[in-house]
Amino acid sequence: MSIVQPAQTYLNVMEVLVAEEVDKQQKQLPPKIAHYVNKSEAIAYALNRLPPLYATSQKGLQQQRLRATREMQPKIALAVRQALAAIQRDPLRSSPPLRLEVDRGPQDALRGLKELLGSEDLSWANLVDEVEHTLIRTARGEITWHKRGTSLAESHEWQDSRYML
C-alpha cells in the first residue's frame, strides 16, 4: 500500500502520551517479560481504547497535553496496562509488521541532487541558488561533468577542476 502524506500540520497528543506511558510501564516490567512486549502493538492497542486529542498549534498542543494529564492520565495508564498484558509477544507467533510505503519521491530526488551537485547542505529552500552557483562554476570551467555511471564518475558525479592534477 502506498500512502502519500501531506505536510503534517496536526498532532494527536494522545499518541505522544501513550508512547510515554508505554515506555514508563515497560521499564517497570521484569526484563524477561519486557523483552516479549512489542511496543508498537501496545501503543496501537491502547490508542484504540482512548479518544484522540488533536492539536494544530503550539498553544493547542499545550492545552490538549494539560487536559490529557489532568483528565485522562488514569485512563491512559489503565489502557497501557491492559495493552501490556494483552500484547506480549508469543515467541511462536510471528506476524510481519505493517510497512507503510510513504511517497519518498521528493526526499529521494533531493538526496540524488545532493550527490550530483556534491552539496550536503542542499535543501529545497536553497536548491535554485545551489544549481545556479554550480552552473556558473561549470561555465567558468571550474567543474567538469561526466555522465553518471562512467568509470570517472562512479564515486563522484562531478569533479572539481581545482582538485584535478
Rank of each mutant, 00 (worst) to 15 (best):
S57H: 05
G105P: 02
Q64S: 05
W145G: 01
S95G: 07
G105W: 02
R162L: 10
S57F: 03
T150W: 05
E71Y: 06
Q82Y: 03
Q107C: 01
D90E: 12
L117I: 09
T9E: 11
R81N: 07
Y45H: 14
S57Q: 02
T69C: 03
L66P: 00
M14G: 09
Q82W: 04
T9N: 14
K147V: 06
E154Y: 10
K75T: 00
G141K: 06
Q58L: 11
L122S: 07
S2R: 14
S95Q: 12
L100E: 11
Q5A: 15
A55P: 04
A139F: 01
P96Q: 05
V16A: 15
D90W: 05
L66H: 09
S95N: 10
Y163V: 03
A34V: 06
R65K: 09
A109K: 08
L110T: 06
T150I: 05
T150Q: 11
G118M: 04
N126G: 12
R148K: 02
L92P: 00
E21R: 12
V131N: 05
I3H: 13
S2L: 14
L127G: 09
S155Y: 09
N48T: 02
A109N: 07
H133R: 14
Q25H: 06
P52N: 13
G118P: 02
G149H: 02
A7K: 14
D90I: 04
V131P: 06
S123L: 06
K114W: 04
R162H: 13
R140H: 09
K32C: 04
E15H: 13
L165I: 03
L127H: 08
L152A: 10
V4Y: 03
G105Q: 04
M14Q: 10
Q64C: 02
A55I: 02
L165A: 13
A153V: 02
I33H: 07
G112A: 08
R93V: 13
N38R: 15
V131F: 08
G112K: 12
